[in-house]
């Protein structure tokens, strides 16, 4: 399989996506809704590239197009640059504060203020919903249709199934999701609106609140991954570290049978 990317032949394996090949060979293709750990959704469309396979030349999204035969790919033509510019300008109007968009705008010469802003604090990449599905939570999803599409919980209510794993918080490229630990609960807040409240565990050792209480069995069931041993820590990380250190020290002294020195006795 011979893959030519922007005029240079590159290494590629059959079935790899264009983005995978590009990343491996140091070719830049912008993406907004793609992370390697998740199934590509090709929603943002900014990774669109020109592909010629055989005689036909067409536009495909690089994040999910699997390369199966000889192909010639152009990742940065004037046509692509022009359309990416429009894409960034359009997205900027719904998420004016985004650092990612500002960087992209510089690269493609986009005018972030071309269209009047209507701040929805979201670029609709859908990563939060997809990562939530992946961890088995299915708490956040894309709700509604058309312009009104948004990330939300079922019926917009506090979710009873959220485990407050905060994967959504980590993955959101525009920092529109955050969490707060208050009053013995963890609150996941999506664009200013609470999505869930999950009680926090109390450390059996020091009594401090830490990590959310997770009923793991149904989560693992939903994720379809049986056999993963449930962790159910009952001590907080700090106590856990302290306990471990104490145990290590005790074992060390036992093994080497070093008599603790008496204070005051000089050798």
């Amino acid at each position: 399989m011979k893959i030519v990317m922007d005029g240079k032949e590159v290494a590629a394996e059959r079935g790899q996506t264009i983005v995978e090949v590009a990343r491996r060979n140091g070719v830049y293709i912008p993406t907004l809704c793609h992370v390697p750990a998740l199934e590509p959704a090709a929603m943002c469309r900014i990774c669109t590239v020109e592909l010629a396979e055989g005689r036909r030349s067409r536009l495909v999204t690089a994040c999910n197009y699997p390369l199966r035969s000889d192909a010639e790919i152009h990742t940065d033509t004037p046509l692509l640059r022009q359309n990416r510019k429009v894409l960034i300008e359009l997205l900027a109007s719904r998420c004016p504060g985004s650092e990612t968009l500002r960087e992209l705008a510089e690269r493609y010469g986009a005018d972030l203020n071309r269209f009047p802003a209507e701040d929805r604090q979201c670029i609709m990449c859908g990563l939060c919903a997809r990562v939530c599905e992946r961890v088995g939570g299915n708490v956040l999803a894309l709700c509604g249709r058309g312009v009104e599409i948004r990330v939300d919980t079922s019926f917009g209510r506090l979710s009873p199934t959220c485990i407050a794993c905060t994967a959504c918080v980590q993955i959101c490229p525009v920092n529109a999701i955050r969490f707060e630990d208050v009053d013995g609960e963890r609150r996941v807040i999506v664009r200013g609106k609470e999505a869930s409240r999950v009680p926090l565990r109390r450390c059996t050792s020091c009594g401090a609140r830490f990590g959310p209480v997770i009923d793991l069995v149904p989560v693992l069931e939903r994720a379809g991954e049986s056999g993963v041993p449930p962790f159910n820590a009952s001590v907080c990380p700090a106590c856990s570290r302290r306990n471990l250190a104490r145990r290590l020290a005790e074992r060390h002294f036992e093994q080497h049978a070093v008599e603790p020195r008496d204070a005051g006795e000089e050798s």
Binding site: A41, A42, M43, C44, R45, I46, V86, L87, L90, L91, S93, R94, F115, M124, G126, L142, G144, R145, G146, V147, E148, I149
Partner: peptide
């Protein structure tokens, strides 16, 4: 079409609205 767009992809959702 704006009313019938599913809204998941950027061009259709944002472009048609503009």
């Amino acid at each position: 079409l704006v009313e019938e767009s599913c809204g998941q992809c950027t061009p259709c959702r944002e472009g048609l609205t503009r």
